[in-house]
Design a protein around this nucleic acid. Structure first.
Length: 757
DNA sequence: CACCGTTAAGTTTTT
DNA sequence: CTTAACGGTG
């Protein structure tokens, strides 16, 4: 007991000892949140003698769940496995499987991921004769998703409580979509949560069972929960009200998935007796980094207001590095890593962050060139590869014969002569009969005489029969609890998939064979690590936990540099951090900027998360030109760079700029007095003219760079304008540079300046 | 029905 | 740069 408390500050202790009744812990970045949570759980178990099986800890991400589970295991002597510590989605999935019959599901239901949901929406639209160009499937899917995120489900009694336009044509698609999923014995991500809400509402005795079971409930990453999850929490803790939520509104970065800041604000409304504890002391970062991050986040208006402080030393300045292009940027990062390594720091102390997964490629190239070991966290979409999805579709069909989406995916893979036209005929017939595709097909196969209206040639009929028999064989084996790995091998070979890949002897097919072998070992590994490993559970783990168990070959003491998106970095910390691609339209992303102020604030929180991962030293890099969609774009430095308290940063530039006239360093020193204590009220200084000017310039009738002008370009040097079209923001110029190269630019984006004649 | 090549467009983040 | 979608040919 004394051990556990010795290193904790008073607020942390309070958070641990205040076990009964609702508690909300507002924990700033690096304030020892996980340590506090873990100590709280072990205190409950060891001091308050609460059985581990009666504690439920829900997190948002698998990573967080895993980390907490490991830390708990090392802290308590009890069996940590009895502890329910999972993500909301995994918890709900398991709950729904064991109570499936109540909702008319089978316990082998399939979980559809986003791309599968999208396919369903597409077929629905198609059925209405609507092309994806007329109605964007994403918009429909987004509507459906938001309906579920606020906790609505079809047939809810308190309909009017929900801000949904029930006459919206999209609502009709929602209803059809739900029906379609139900027919397929499938549930999507949102449906997992809402399914439990519905179950509890319809069957109070079931709710009671779970209420009684969990004496203490903890919720981590509370700022990322949506309304549906909030309601789930309420339903679970209703009787005892022993709920502890931990979050930080400044790190809320999932509003696009329905995360609702209201969950933090409403906590007091629903639990008036809630004890609010703030953890504001940061133990992670240097004081300079804290100050830099605070100066950025304080510009957000949507926050409860928390003041972070630290006793840590000042440390080094944050370095902002300007690069000519994304390649130079990656090279800078690689060079710096080499330098740090020479200085004695292990690779595992360093991390490189980026906004989007696609940005990792160039960084990987640069690291590989210098033989720097690295691991990409999250990014690799192993389970999104065609061959993997194909084989898994077979597996899904075996487990859940109603999964018509899976069947239509593999009906002609490998090629069986059943093309789009035949498939359409079969699907139409299944819809007509209101049965699943597989069910209809096996009727057809058994009694072909009843299906003379479907014109299919003999070859197709026989290959259908073969396919159905294979699936039925596999189903029998599956029911007999045959090990998943055996089923996998059988699928791979008896479908002819393996031979079909083997026959095509190109480089790509070889890689696919390798991937399938890897899938095989993943299944083996799953079998060994989970008791009662079924194919259903394996498939579930794939959709719900995409954090591939990266086969990290430990590189002795030095470890590996970690590469990940900023979203993936949440909850982690590293002594040396590089935040890359900090440019307008990248970070903040152009997509978020479309959403206006709300999107801008969310990206700012994301940037704040990125900065606060760093312990000792933080580099923020941006590239002047970046390859995007196969084109070089000039976005200019991110607006957030201007928001960092200039006292905390130093600016540098790497080589590679052709033009000497280009000046980027702000002249802050002049306007920004050293003695100024409060920078919050200071205006935002321009690094240079922003790429997309906020203030509309009065429309110029004349082109800025008429034909024949002499101009200078940051990257390509000096040149002459050959042709000019448009004016104002639409102005396009074609420039011939001194080295003879001709290039076309949008004046709005290109870093051009005029040269005197 | 299968297999090219061409063209157009692009959610960014994750359960 | 990627991928989906389309159109033409065998």
């Amino acid at each position: 007991m004394s051990d556990r408390m010795a290193e904790l500050n008073p607020s942390q202790k309070e958070a641990i000892l205040h076990t009964d009744g609702p508690v909300m812990i507002l924990a700033g970045a690096g304030s020892g949140k996980t340590r506090t949570l873990v100590s709280r759980i072990s205190y409950l178990i060891e001091e308050k003698r609460v059985s581990p099986s009666r504690i439920l800890a829900l997190t948002f991400s698998n990573k967080a769940a895993k980390e907490m589970r490991e830390r708990i295991a090392s802290m308590i002597s009890y069996d940590a496995n009895a502890l329910q510590m999972t993500t909301f989605h995994a918890f709900c999935s398991r709950l729904l499987r064991s109570e499936a019959n109540y909702l008319g599901l089978s316990r082998n239901f399939t979980i559809y991921d986003t791309s599968e949901s999208k396919s369903i929406v597409k077929t629905l639209l198609n059925r209405h004769g609507i092309s994806p160009k007329e109605v964007n499937p994403y918009d429909v899917l987004h509507f459906i998703d938001s309906v579920k995120n606020i906790g609505y489900y079809d047939g809810r009694a308190d309909k009017s409580e929900f801000d949904i336009d029930f006459s919206d044509p999209f609502y009709k698609y929602y209803e059809e979509y739900e029906l379609e999923l139900h027919k397929a014995n499938a549930v999507d991500f949102g449906g997992l949560i809402v399914g439990v809400l519905k179950l509890f509402a319809l069957f109070p005795e079931v709710q009671k069972r779970y209420q009684d079971r969990f004496e203490y409930i903890l919720i981590d990453e509370y700022q990322d929960t949506n309304r549906a999850q909030f309601e789930l929490m309420k339903l679970l803790c209703e009787s005892r009200r022993n709920v502890c939520v931990v979050g930080d509104e400044d790190q809320s970065i999932y509003s696009w998935r329905g995360a609702d800041i209201k969950n933090i604000l409403d906590m007091e409304e629903f639990f008036p007796e809630v004890k609010i504890i703030k953890l504001e002391q940061n133990y992670r970062s240097s004081s300079t980094i804290i100050e830099a991050a605070t100066s950025v986040i304080s510009r957000n208006s949507l926050r409860k207001g928390k003041s972070m402080w630290t006793e840590n030393p000042d440390g080094e300045l944050v370095t902002i590095v300007e690069n000519a292009d994304d390649r130079k940027e990656s090279q800078f990062v690689a060079d710096k890593i080499v330098e740090l390594k020479k200085g004695g720091s292990p690779y595992s102390d360093m991390a490189v962050f980026y906004r989007t997964n696609s940005q990792s490629r160039m960084i990987e190239d640069a690291l590989r060139l210098k033989n720097i070991p690295y691991r990409v966290v999250g990014g690799v979409k192993f389970y999104e590869r065609k061959e993997i999805k194909d084989i898994l579709a077979y597996a899904r069909l075996v487990v859940n014969p109603k999964d018509s989406l899976a069947l239509s995916r593999i009906i002609n893979v490998p090629a069986r002569g059943i093309g789009a036209t035949s498939l359409r005929k079969l699907e139409d017939e299944a819809v007509r009969q209101n049965s699943s595709l597989l069910e209809m097909m096996s009727h057809l196969s058994d009694n072909p005489e009843n299906y003379s209206h479907i014109r299919l040639n003999a070859k197709i009929k026989s290959s259908l029969k073969q396919l159905i028999e294979l699936i039925q064989d596999l189903q029998i084996l599956e029911e007999k609890k045959t090990p998943p790995s055996f089923l996998f091998e059988k699928i791979l070979h008896e479908t002819g998939y393996w031979d079909f890949l083997k026959a095509t002897k190109d480089y790509e097919s070889l890689a696919r064979l390798d991937n399938l072998k890897e899938l095989g070992s993943a299944i083996k590994q799953f079998e060994e690590s989970v008791q009662d490993a079924t194919l259903t559970l394996f498939l579930e783990s794939i959709t719900l936990d995409q954090t591939n168990e990266e086969v990290s070959q430990e590189n002795g003491e030095a470890g590996e540099v970690s590469l990940m998106t900023v979203h993936g970095a949440k909850g982690l910390e590293f002594p040396y951090v590089f935040v890359t691609g900090v440019e307008e339209n990248v970070f903040p992303s152009y997509r978020a900027l479309d959403e206006g102020e709300y999107g801008e604030e969310e990206e700012r929180r994301l940037f704040y998360v990125a900065m606060t991962r760093a312990m000792k030293k933080l580099w923020i890099t941006f590239a002047c030109g970046r390859m995007l969609f196969g084109q070089i774009k000039f976005n200019g430095p991110s607006r957030y760079l201007n928001e960092i308290n200039p006292k905390c940063v130093e600016w540098t530039r790497t080589e590679g700029f052709r033009s000497q006239s280009y000046q980027s360093k702000p002249d802050w020193e002049d306007d920004y007095s050293q003695e100024s204590q409060s920078y919050d009220d200071m205006p935002v200084y321009q690094v240079r003219a922003p790429a997309t000017p906020k203030i509309e310039k009065k429309p110029e009738k004349q082109a800025r760079y008429p034909k024949g002008s002499r101009v200078s370009h940051t990257l390509y040097g000096e040149g002459t304008v050959l042709e000019t079209t448009g004016f104002g923001t639409d102005e396009i110029v074609t420039i011939k540079f001194s080295d003879g190269a001709k290039k076309k630019f949008a004046v709005k984006y290109a870093p051009l300046s005029e040269l005197a004649h």
